[in-house]
Structure formats: structure tokens, C-alpha cells
Design a protein around this nucleic acid. Structure first.
Lengths: 145, 145
DNA sequence: GGTCAGTTTTGAATCACTCAAGATAGGGGC
DNA sequence: GCCCCTATCTTGAGTGATTCAAAACTGACC
């Protein structure tokens, strides 16, 4: 009963007004398998399925999907851009300072406090983004090395 | 009564255990003049004072100052790294989505809510970082073009 | 003022990403 | 099911930000 039927990605793409190419389907499926993957990670995941895919195509697909609102692009400091399928909800990310692993975090207090700073320096504010930094379970458990 | 006496940067550097080279003093002074400058901006600001300075030296100085805790490095998505002298306090940034201008923002509710997400996915959390996105006063006032 | 490790200069290389031109393949209409 | 048109992908090259390495230099302790 998982929602990952073969055709669902095609329907998702078409409903967003995009052509359902096999590269796009493969990228969506890759992101289902590894959330928060970067462009190269998606590329690696797509290759076995579509060996002729180019890295540039992956960049193009990710750009199109991002623009269509089907994927969300996150860019933690010091890391290449990551992409995830979870869109439309207000969730944030926690990044491991040692290995770069990323986890999803729901905002404990909702969006209101974070969205209303005391003084915006005259800026017109549209969105707020929270990034947490810490250690992932694996790195916290590992010795100093 | 400004705190920007000639010698103060040298004292600051020495107290942090760093050699007070003229390049480092010049970088600190550049950051006083333009907060949130990127490496190239600092380089440009330093050149008139020290024409023989290389861009690589600026990167090296900024890296050393960041490591020593004298400057803070921020990396908004889609922008080169920016550097600022304001360290040690809990303040965040607002970035103009059109021109990339950056402003400082004090957290309206303190750091507590942002630092306590409901579920950290097993991560050990150390810091939280908030980035606001919006339009700067100039871009908000400007027509669509 | 001399000495030496920490810094900077010079030159090159890497990484993530973008651009452009031509080849290819979805998918609506028949 | 087949054709055509255009969106998309492939191939190849280029850019900007940043880092690496070796040699020249210089700040700071003595």
C-alpha cells in the first residue's frame, strides 16, 4: 500500500504541466529512495536505470521540478545543493557538522515566532528558514578518530 | 568615541593569538566599513590601502579570522560566502531575494523556541540558524522593471 | 637587530553549476 | 497506431567561488 506505484510519478509530472520523460520519472524515484540527495547523488542513483543519462540532464530535471514546485531545493552552508520531495509543509533541517547528513525537523512552535522578528531593518519579509546544526546519531556515537 | 582606533585591530588580533599583519588589519577595517561583504568585496576594499594584496590572502585571512572567532561566516543560498564582525550574539539575517542585500535581525523571541524542535531525528543539536527572505527597502520601492 | 615559524604571493587546480547548439523523444491530433 | 512539433536531453565547453602547494616574505620574541 505504499504510494510508490510505477505510474504515480508520471501522473505527478503531468498534473504539474510537465512532460513525463523517463529521466524525470527516474529522478523522482531516486529522490524517493534517498531524500536530501545532491545532484551528483541523484545522478548516481539514476545511472543504473538509465545509463545514458547525463549529469547536466539531472541538473535540468532538478531545476524544472524545483520550479514546478515538485521538489524543494536546500543549500546548507558548505554543502552542495540538496533536493527533497517533501514540499508545501513548513519543516526545517538539521545538518551534521561532521559528515553532512541531513534530517527533517518539524518546527516545535509553528512558524509564527520565527516569522516575526522584532526589527526587519526595513525589509519586506516573505519566508523564514531554520537550519539546525549538530551531530547525527552515527557521528555522535563514533569515537574522535 | 568610536571604537575604531588605529591600533584596536592589532590588539584584537593579538588577543586572539594571531599575528597582527597589515593584511589582517586591513581586512578587519574593510569589514567595519562594509558588513556582510563577500571575499571579493573585502578584497576590493583592501586594495587601495594595500595594492599588493592577493585575493588568496584575503581568503586566508578571512579563514583565519573565522577560525579564531573574530568574524562570522554566513552563506545564504545562491550567494557567495559573506563575512561580518558581529560575533558572539544570537542574531540572524534577512536576505533580499532580488538583489542579495543582507540585513541583521535580532530574534524576536530569543533563542529558546528555535533551539528546541519537537523531534531532532536522533541528532545532537548544537546551534540553530534562521535566515529570513524578503525584499530590501530599495527593491521593494523599485518598479518591476 | 637576528632568527624562524607563521603568512602571504604566485600560479594552478578543483568543485558545483551553467550555457549553448544540435540530436532526441513525449504526446496531442489525426 | 502514426506524424509532427516542441519541450527536453546530450554533448561539449565555460564560469565563479574557493582551495591547494611551493617559494618568498615578515612579524614578533629574544
Amino acid at each position: 500500500m505504499t504510494a510508490t506505484r510505477i505510474g504515480s510519478e508520471r501522473e505527478l509530472l503531468r498534473s504539474a504541466g510537465l512532460r513525463a520523460t523517463e529521466q524525470r520519472v527516474a529522478v523522482l524515484r531516486a529522490l524517493e529512495g534517498s531524500p536530501h540527495a545532491d545532484a551528483n547523488g541523484v545522478f548516481t542513483a539514476v545511472l543504473p536505470e538509465l545509463p545514458d543519462t547525463s549529469l547536466q540532464a539531472v541538473y535540468g530535471v532538478l531545476g524544472a521540478l524545483t520550479e514546478a514546485g515538485l521538489v524543494r531545493r536546500i543549500e546548507p552552508a558548505g554543502s552542495p545543493a540538496r533536493y527533497e520531495l517533501r514540499v508545501g509543509d513548513n519543516h526545517h533541517h538539521i545538518v551534521c557538522t561532521r559528515c553532512g547528513a541531513i534530517g527533517d525537523v518539524d518546527c516545535a512552535v509553528g512558524s509564527a515566532p520565527c516569522l516575526t522578528p522584532a526589527d526587519t531593518s526595513g525589509f519586506t519579509l516573505t519566508t523564514a528558514e531554520v537550519t539546525y546544526w549538530g551531530l547525527c546519531p552515527d557521528c555522535a556515537a563514533a569515537p574522535l578518530t
